[in-house]
Design a protein around this nucleic acid. Structure first.
Length: 581
RNA sequence: GUACCCGUAGCUCAAUUGGAUAGAGUGUUGGCCUCCGACGCCAAAGGUUGCGAGUUCGAGCCUCGCCGGGUACGCCA
């Protein structure tokens, strides 16, 4: 099964390159940068010319002459310094689209070597309200998780709570200081817990005694003190409830709700391995693992602090051990912002020295921070952090203004309108995030995040809803889909755009880059809109064209829905609009 | 101080191994609802890719130097 036009051409090119004794690494095409000249272009002749010091146009002409013999090209030319331009026959593109429509995976292939991938994203902390800073990791992680599963990998996602460090001791210490005991702790909800944590932070900032107290309580908690342990469990559970509610709103899901605390036992084992194999050494009372320094200085990993407590990097190392031994991970991917780059370099290097994860691919996907208009991490207008719940509520409020009120439209009561509002608001928030390449930060536009127009989630949802509407009407009129024929240029462009889907998904998979899918999804919706405006479907000239266009529309709808799914965005059947204006 | 990342249209962002005429959205200006959903479509204007050298047939991308912004740098996580 080979539903990708590019693969079809590449296979042919490969044969030709071999026949001409050319390096077949360059025997591939890409979607043309010049749609006026070609559908696909091969730059291989230029690359080869560089290596062999020959004339690129001569090499290009040689390849083009062989290519003339193949059956699927409409035209082949060598242009400019040596670009090989290919234009495909209409019926080849049409048949490809037909085959995609008949395929249950819509033409998308799978990886050749399915393996087990553990994804670590989210990473919220106990006793801290989730804010916009938590958005990216969750939203990106969820999308990558769906992409990885779709291409055939076995995925385990882990939220990995920050539930085990000094902050836990700080908050328990703060409660004892204010209440005199931990008796009331079991009545506290998330709001109160968060408040205690804020105060603990302020206190510890300039009070050495408070810090020391918190450290001691942390140590006792980790040693298994039952009183602290019970209090901690309550704090953790309350936080988890709030965190789960937030993720549920965002449709961000996890297979595992592990936390740093779950690695505690294994931390001890790792320390033993390090000591027994002389990988660690004692320095200023702390047990450390030194790392190789190249041109850049790299501080050692402190696995046991001088006071005997485990260092935070040890937790990550131990967790890798667990994921490899218990979960049989073959690949582990982390999603955090760029501030943790050095941390993971250290962790990965230490893991290698310890021999904990042989042949396991460890990857840190870095993303930029969500910034405000000033280019600094996003703050509300009064300077505070905006929590996730407020953000979602604001987006929903804005969306609901453009939707009808409950029961204004038949069949749309309170529950239905609420669901639609939710779907659109979340699409707006998620797409605004996912359309950006993850490596760079982006500016969060407070005024734009629930916009419908332009490059937005709702624009794509709208495209889907329009197609749904046409297909419903067509079905009611007894019109059916049939083989695809390409006449208008808009039909041809659409069919070509659809053919890119496999490549797009695979690139998003290898690069762990959902924005590639977001970009494509938007382009496809746009290409469809152009087609929609230029080519009437139900009122086309003849029956053959009607059924062809309906099939093209249905395939587009299915691919748009699949792409939205991979982004973690829902596609409502209809989009409603408020009556006013 | 050292290391890493970033600087592209007024604004927010793209640009798959170095390739042709650097693309979208938004904003601005103009056009398109008697026809399948105008949250749409079409068109125009908008650029010395921070600056200066170098490598190359060819540089937004590679190298070096400046300028400007960000982040991280042993016992917080």
């Amino acid at each position: 099964m080979n539903l990708l036009l590019e693969n079809k051409i590449n296979t042919e090119l490969c044969k030709i390159f071999n026949k001409l004794k050319l390096d077949d690494r360059f025997a591939f095409v890409k979607v043309s940068d010049r749609p006026d000249l070609s559908d696909f272009q091969c730059n291989g002749a230029l690359a080869l010319a560089k290596i062999t010091h020959k004339n690129p146009r001569e090499i290009g002409t040689m390849i083009a002459e062989e290519l003339q013999k193949c059956t699927f090209c409409e035209s082949i030319s060598v242009d400019g310094p040596g670009f090989i331009n290919l234009k495909l026959k209409d019926d080849v593109i049409a048949q490809n689209a037909d085959a995609m429509a008949d395929d249950e995976r819509l033409g998308c292939g799978m990886v050749e070597d399915p393996h087990k991938v553990v994804l670590d994203y989210g990473g919220p902390n106990v006793a801290k309200t989730m804010h916009v800073g938590h958005l990216r990791s969750g939203v990106i992680g969820e999308s990558v998780s769906r992409i990885e599963r779709f291409v055939g990998n076995d995925v385990i996602s882990d939220v990995h709570l920050g539930d085990w460090g000094t902050p836990m001791g700080m908050i328990i210490s703060e409660i004892i200081m204010q209440d005199g005991s931990l008796d009331k702790v079991y009545d506290y909800d998330i709001a109160q817990i968060t408040e205690f944590y804020k105060q603990a932070n302020i206190r510890c900032k300039d009070d050495e005694n408070a810090r020391e107290n918190a450290r001691q309580i942390t140590a006792k908690l980790q040693e298994g003190n039952t009183q602290y342990r019970r209090a901690w469990e309550h704090l953790r559970n309350e936080s988890l409830k709030a965190i789960k509610a937030n993720y549920e709103q965002l449709d961000v899901n996890f297979d595992l709700w592990w936390g740093e605390s779950d690695a505690h036992q294994v931390c001890g084992e790792v320390v033993r391995i390090a000591r027994e194999n002389d990988i660690s050494e004692v320095d200023n009372g702390a047990t450390i693992i030194r790392l190789e320094e190249s041109n850049k200085p790299k501080p050692p990993v402190i696995i046991v602090k001088s006071d005997g407590a485990f260092g935070y990097q040890l937790t990550d190392i131990a967790t890798i051990k667990m994921r490899v031994e218990d979960l049989h991970a073959q690949e582990i991917v982390y999603f955090t912002d760029s501030r943790q780059t050095l941390h993971f370099e250290q962790v990965f290097e230490a893991v290698q020295k310890l021999g904990i994860a042989p042949n396991v691919k460890l990857q840190h996907i870095v993303f930029g921070t969500v910034n405000g208009a000033d280019g600094k991490p996003f703050k509300t207008r009064d300077g505070g952090v905006m929590d996730l719940e407020t953000l979602i509520a604001m987006s929903k409020e804005k969306v609901s203004q453009s939707l009808p009120k409950p029961n204004e439209v038949e069949g749309y009561g309170t529950a239905e309108i609420e669901k639609l509002t939710q779907q659109i608001a979340i699409a707006a928030i998620k797409f605004q995030d996912l359309k950006n390449t993850i490596a760079s930060g982006y500016v969060f536009e407070l005024d734009d995040f629930a916009k419908f127009e332009g490059k937005t989630g709702p624009y794509i949802q709208y495209a889907v809803a329009r197609i749904n509407s046409v297909l419903r009407k067509a079905a009611a009129s007894g019109l059916q889909t049939g083989n695809i024929v390409l006449q208008a240029p808009e039909e041809r462009s659409l069919a070509l755009k659809l053919a890119q889907v496999h490549n797009v998904v695979m690139r998003a998979h290898t690069d762990k880059e959902p924005s590639i899918i977001a970009e494509y999804t938007y382009n496809l919706a746009q290409t469809f809109s152009t087609f929609y405006n230029a080519c009437p479907m139900m009122n086309a000239n003849n029956q053959e064209l009607v059924s062809s266009r309906l099939k093209l529309a249905k395939l587009t709808r299915d691919i748009l829905k699949l792409m939205l799914y991979l982004l973690g965005i829902e596609a409502p059947e209809v989009m409603l609009k408020a009556e006013n204006k």
